[in-house]
Design a binder for these strands. Structure first.
Lengths: 143, 143
DNA sequence: AAGCAATTGAAAATGAATATCAAAAGCAGG
DNA sequence: CCTGCTTTTGATATTCATTTTCAATTGCTT
């Protein structure tokens, strides 16, 4: 599915007349290799250790392209940094965020998705994406 | 219910050993008088026109107190500003956010709330609050 | 009224994100 | 493989929301 995503990005780039560059390839590789919710800074530091030449501005710019291309999604947690997560085809996961230890538990619930569709339809609203975050204390932290 | 909220804040202040100040009273009045999703800047400007002495740092500080006191909730939209909305006892509304015109439509759905409780229970998670935002185009903007 | 700690306002500091711009790199067409 | 044109990049400066700092003020207790 990594090839799949690279193809998606290439198609997007082609359709927008964007050029294919070494940096974008590298950043995409690193982004695809991460797990959930990388901040730009985190991704930048990882990349920098292997590719010192790449600047953080490029990482910022490129992640925004990934969002446009439909590969990534912005996640705003409460730590003052914009984070990015993968957009999986079809599937959509939401988050339980522990305010004690910052653990993030992902879950999926079809019924909730359906209800959202209904609500949107009722308002003539066309859904592009959504975000559901539940804040509280995880099993460990509720002590 | 405004008196209710003032009392809630006073109780909180008392329990934390916080002092009662003119500024906090004023800021609370203005916050309670706002409708949904005030940014700190917006609230500060409103207050400043009638009370020029009050500084923005105090508004920032005080809104965080309201969150601690359970009166307010942070809402992170995608405009780079932290916004605050009222916490209504029991009820919880979520948002349809139009990426075309930035309109925000609020809705409530009991079933979704229930499902969230179930999911949390399944993970031994204790819910403090949650946030559901659906992004897309409103009826006007989907043209 | 006096003393002490919390609070405030102004200004400086921080920090994420964006804009600027000259140099470098991609992509034609010849 | 050059040439010329445009996009992209990296470094730096800039912006802007938020936080911190700190001296002065204020609230509270005795």
């Amino acid at each position: 599915m990594i090839l799949e995503k690279k193809k998606t990005f290439n198609n997007f780039a082609a359709s927008k007349g964007l050029r294919s560059t070494r940096q974008r390839d590298i950043i995409l590789d690193y982004f695809l290799a991460t797990r959930q919710h990388v901040s730009v800074e985190e991704l930048y530091l990882k990349i920098k250790s292997a590719h010192p030449g790449i600047g953080s501005a490029t990482v910022y710019r490129t992640l925004k392209l990934f969002v446009e291309a439909g590969l990534a999604r912005e996640v705003l947690l409460h730590d003052g940094q914009t984070r990015y997560e993968h957009v999986m085809a079809g599937e959509h996961h939401d988050h339980l965020v522990c305010t004690g230890c910052n653990a993030i538990i992902e879950f999926e619930n079809e019924t909730i998705e359906h209800l959202q569709d209904e609500i949107a339809a009722r308002h003539g609203f066309l859904i592009r994406n959504h975000k559901l975050e539940i804040y509280g204390l995880c099993a460990n932290c509720r002590g």
